[in-house]
Structures are given as C-alpha cells and as structure tokens.
Design a protein around this nucleic acid. Structure first.
Lengths: 251, 251
DNA sequence: TGCACAGCCTGACGTCGCGTCAGGGTCAAG
DNA sequence: CTTGACCCTGACGCGACGTCAGGCTGTGCA
C-alpha cells in the first residue's frame, strides 16, 4: 500500500507517517524504484500498535522501545493495552459521574468545594493539606461567591424553573407525611415527574442517571440536608422513590 | 491561594499556571504587593473548567473562547462536557472490546484483517475503498504472514497451551455429540474450564469478558468456522454454554 | 504521444503546550 | 539575620506533528 492509502485507512495524515519513518518508529518495509513508500501487512500491524499506544498517551520514543523489545511478545502488548484501556474506562466513568454530580449540585443550588471538583485531577491529594484548605475555602466565602456567580448567570425563567422544582418537592414532602410508601406507584410517579423536570430544564437525565443522583441524596450530607430541611426522612424517601422509579423504567 | 498551592490542588505544574496566565486563559484575580499571583475561589472554578476541556482535547485557545463566551452559562458547559465525556466513554469501551476480540483471535490462531483492526481509528472508512482493500489484504497473504509472525514469537510452552485448548474443545465437541444441552451444568463446567484456561495462559478473562467473546463465536464467521470445522453446531453450543456459565457466575 | 492532474518525495520552517534552566526577589522560622 | 522554601520574569528547548515550497511520478484520456 502507498502512504496515502495507509493514512486513509488508519485515520492519520501522510505527514504523520513521514514523521514515524524519519524517527525510525515505523519505516515501511519497502520502497518502489521511484522512492515511494510501500507498506506491508506487517507494517500495518505495527502501525496499529503504535496508534493504540499513542492514544494511551505514550511518547513515541517509548512506543518504539516497547515495540522493539524482543522479550515482549504480542500477547504481552495486548494485555498491557487492555489494562491501560480499562484504567481509562474507569477514570472516564468517574469523570462522567463527577459532572453529573455537579449538574445536580447546581440544580439544587449547592456548590461543591474546590477539593471535590479537583479530586479527579489531583490523583494524590496530600492528606494534611486537605484540612487546611477545607477551612480556608469551605462553606462561607466560597459558598457566597459561588451563589453570587450563579445569580449573575441566571436567565429570565430561572424563577419559574425554581418554582417547578419547589412544587414537586413540596408534593413529595406531603406524600411522605401522608404516609405514602416511597416504592409505591404514587411515589414513583412523583420521582418520574422530578426526572422529567430536570430533563426539561437542566440536562438530559436518563433513569439510570437519576438513580445515581438519587444515591447521592443519602450519601452526600449537603444533598441530604437540602431535603431534611423540608421534612425529616425526606432525603431517604426521595432516594428510594427515585431508584424504584428507575427500576420500573428499566423493567 | 498562591500559585504553588493551586498547582498542587489541581495536579498541574506551576509553569502551567504561568502559561495560562500569559496567554490570558486564566489570570489570577489578584497579586500581592510583591507580585505573587493570588487565586480566588472563582479562579479555581475556572481552572477546573479549563482542565476538563483540556482533558477532552480542546486546544487552549478554543477553551478560552468557550469560557469567555458570555452567552454560554455554566450549565451549558456542564451539558457539553457531559456529552463529550459520554462519547469518550463509549469510544473507550469499544476499544476495550476490540482489544479483547484481538486477544481471543490470537488465542485461536485467527488474524483480523487490517480494516477490522483500524475501524476504531478511521472514524469514517470510505465504502468503495473497503472492498478493494479486502481483496488485496484479505485471507491469503495477510493471513499467511501473520501466522508466520505468530510462530516467530512463540515460546517453549506454546505447544502445551495449544494442547490444553484442544483438549477442552474436543470434550465440548464430544458433549455436543452426546446430546448434552448447552445450558446444562456439565456444559457450563466445560465453559468455565475454558475460561480459566484462557485466564491462566493468555489474559485475565472475567465471566463478563468471556460472555462477550462467546457472542463473537456466532457473530464472527471466522470464529464460527473454527468451531464448525470440528463439529456442526459447535459454535452455537459453545456460545450458549459460555453465556450460561457467565450468567451462573453473575448470580 | 502528450498532457493534465492526483499523488509522492524531501527539506525546512511554524505551532502548541508546556519543561527546564538562569538570575534574582520574598517570606516565615529559627 | 540567615537559611531554605517559594515566587518572579525571561528565554531557550522539545515533542509531535502542520504547512508550505519545489520538484518528481503515474495514469487516464484526448
């Protein structure tokens, strides 16, 4: 295959293949009389490995040493790539969950501490520092500032949206106090209403997402407090209702 | 907070923050009399957004225009980030699956075509080109070359490993021909034996992974052919047994 | 047979996102 | 009042290509 064909197949530019040739990472196994690069099937296999390792963030020089190591058989590479990809999958899933948590926090007017926002990036988070930073940035100042910013970004119908949320929450509280079981159809209908309201006004919220959010209502104390201020036991009640509703949708 | 503290919290270097300051992407909201950069809570919030978009592959200049766009409120950013992260999650999951398929292909001495290997990278794959390339690189030459490479990488106990696989496959074929149902405990035990053999000799193969692989036994004709050469209906039988076994492990 | 035009070649310089000194001021602790 | 950790501003370097420039090659078709 010519360089252009390989480039199209692999989704890279010709320049990239030139580059890989010059640095000795991937030299085509042949050339035509006119000097055209000719790539064999084996070359394509190597390119595939190169692109996988590159995608995983390895510098090209390291990719070369990995692939040229005669003691590492292909299965070894596959195992390593599999492990690295699974790590990345976990990390991405964690980031998705973090963003979802932030969405919900914003929805409810709660602001996360900087530590929480960054915990996915820091990787290591020195323990002793944590307490100190918590004190400096916790609750008071950061909270107030963020609230101010929220107001600044607010649009005209913000009030209406908040009222809608209020309405559902109030009816949930009433149901709780009337003794309605959180896994009853009536409770699930309220949960579903809440979910659709979020989807309409904030972000597209699938039943699975909603279930995940429901869990944080009891796991994260600030979310818990938000509901408990309205009625004792409401956080747990809503959490259960939301999850029951999600299970119902899934079935 | 001073630049060093912010750097530690966010998991970046001081140099990076200097850089973001100079290019105007993130300028600290204050300075001390001595010229020290002082970051506010709002600055940290912006940094968080910057790092998320950076992680998602945006060039810094584009990140700046995104964040400085006055018409885009924070919720808008969260929605976009959520969508992009989910895309990435799907893509990574697809890559994991592809690597698992390759592991299994190698295990069974089957070589995937270059098109299959690259389908995750190409993104678009021109239709007309596909058939042509298939012809050039399909079955014959690529297959033979790859087999040769596989032999070259082979280690001393390769023979033993192959024999083990042979043994299990032969017993599966015997069970099929003896009329053993593929979802019977006996069949599931054979499937489990196969799974543990893969784990020992090739790569760590969870029941879920094994179930996924089992599906390809009937979905990919080359895997199917591998089993059908031994006995008619064996591919479907093994696939069912493997999935039944995975379900049993999961319960 | 000639020509147009897509595709290939080799330099060579530019870019982005920082890493890495160099040379010098700042600050809290002892 | 010194020591050591931390901060500042240049300025150069680097990895992984992008992007011309200037020129050769290969092929369909008039």
């Amino acid at each position: 295959m010519n360089v252009g064909e390989v480039a199209a197949l692999a989704g890279v530019t010709v320049r990239t293949l030139h580059h890989y040739d010059r640095i000795g990472l991937l030299s085509p196994s042949g050339r035509t009389a006119a000097g055209y690069r000719r790539y064999s099937a084996a070359d394509l296999g190597r390119l595939h490995q190169v692109l996988l390792y590159r995608e995983l963030g390895f510098p090209l020089e390291e990719v070369a040493t990995l692939l040229d190591d005669p003691s590492a058989d292909p299965a070894e590479h596959l195992r390593r790539q599999h492990r690295l990809l699974r790590d990345r999958l976990d990390r991405t899933a964690a980031m998705v969950a973090a963003v979802e948590k932030e969405m919900e926090a914003r929805h409810m007017g709660i602001d996360l501490t900087p530590e929480e926002k960054f915990e996915l990036f820091g990787d290591w988070l020195p323990e002793e520092y944590e307490a100190e930073a918590q004190e400096r940035w916790g609750e008071t100042e950061a909270w107030a500032q963020s609230q101010a910013r929220t107001r600044a970004y607010t649009k005209d119908d913000w009030v209406r949206v908040q009222a809608e949320g209020e309405d559902v929450e109030a009816r949930m509280a009433a149901a709780l106090q009337a003794g309605v079981a959180p896994d009853s159809p009536q409770a699930m209908d309220l949960a579903e209403e809440a979910r659709q309201q979020i989807s309409r006004n904030f972000y597209d919220c699938s039943p699975e997402m909603h279930a995940g959010i429901g869990r944080t209502y009891v796991e994260d104390e600030r979310f818990t407090a938000h509901y408990e201020r309205r009625a004792a036991g409401l956080a747990q009640w809503v959490s259960t209702a939301v999850q029951a509703n999600a299970a119902r949708q899934g079935a």
